[in-house]
Amino acid sequence: MSRFLLGAPPAFMKYTDVPLFVSNRPLSKIKNLYRARGPVAVDSGGFSELDDHGSWDHGPTPRQYAGQVARYVDEVGIEWAAPQDWMCEPWIVAKTGLSVAEHQRRTVGNYLDLKSIDAGLPIIPVIQGWTVADYERCIALYDRAGVDLRTLPLVGIGSVCRRQGTEEAAQLIERIAGHGIRLHGFGFKIDGLRRVAHCLPSSDSMAWALAGRREEQGCDFRFPRSRGPHKNEANCLRYALAWRERVLAAVEVGLARPEQLVFPFAA
């Protein structure tokens, strides 16, 4: 079974019970939160923080983020949240000026910090890296910190989404899943899920919003109290749910793929 979380603005939590993936950046700005109708997980917004600023200095501190997550558990009813991890795409590493190894140390360190602030927080660890050797080094960092990723219900795998449709990425996911780790794939779209859904118990994507921005006519769908019809489909629930159906079909294809023997490739 593979569960897909639809990347969504917070408002969607009011109107649909499909599993959603909501970013902390807009969610943290809402003064009066509301109970979600369905399952919700929270993204820390780490890619945007590092892409915009090259650090987490402009985002919440770990203690502030822990407080936000605790609030979402109580008021929204979220299932889990990502840590304040450090992505390892080459262009992100170039912006921070740090090494991949340092990004990994900070990713593991943040998870440990958040759990030390409140051990009951539903924060999942995230494996970061760029090559196979990087990801396996990150697993070893968790092992040395006393965190056995193989025993946890879900572990994120980062810095893969922008190469997810490649054979390299498919082999990487299969290799890491082969460690017995239940992976959540961040930002996995249709092509990627056709290849590796059988290795991902969970995944998310908000790619529909970018595609919807190109649909300039919009449709007649409106939220209650909407001021008027939308100019494009970038925030349209009906458009997003229709796109989700295509993703679920891709997941079924990916689940039906026979598992392949994975041969080592250049790390």
Rank of each mutant, 00 (worst) to 15 (best):
I92C: 07
H58T: 01
G38Y: 10
R35P: 05
V160P: 01
Y239V: 03
I123M: 14
A242W: 10
V251C: 14
D148L: 11
L20W: 02
R257Y: 12
F4H: 00
R105F: 07
Y239H: 06
S99V: 07
L98D: 12
W56I: 12
G45H: 02
G178W: 14
P60R: 15
D118G: 00
G129P: 07
L172Q: 01
L241Q: 11
G192Q: 05
Y65I: 07
S2G: 08
A169Q: 09
T96H: 04
E168F: 10
L172C: 05
P153T: 13
L183M: 13
A94G: 10
P224Q: 05
D85Y: 12
V73R: 14
I124F: 06
A177K: 06
D204G: 02
R150Q: 11
E75P: 12
K115R: 03
A267E: 00
A267L: 01
D17E: 14
A41M: 14
W130L: 12
H198Q: 15
A119Y: 09
A207R: 05
R150K: 15
P10C: 03
Q217T: 14
Y111C: 11
A249T: 05
E79G: 02
P90V: 04
R244H: 07
V76G: 03
T107W: 08
D113V: 06
G97I: 01
G192H: 03
N110W: 04
P125I: 00
R150F: 12
S159H: 02
F47S: 11
L33H: 00
D74W: 03
E245D: 11
V42L: 03
R257C: 11
R144P: 13
S116A: 08
H198L: 15
R246M: 04
R222L: 08
T107C: 15
R63S: 09
H58I: 03
L248M: 11
A177Y: 11
P9G: 09
F12E: 07
V247S: 04
T96G: 06
Q171M: 15
L27D: 00
E168N: 05
A81H: 11
F263E: 15
R175Q: 09
A82P: 04
A81L: 13
P229V: 13
H58W: 09
R225G: 10
D220K: 02
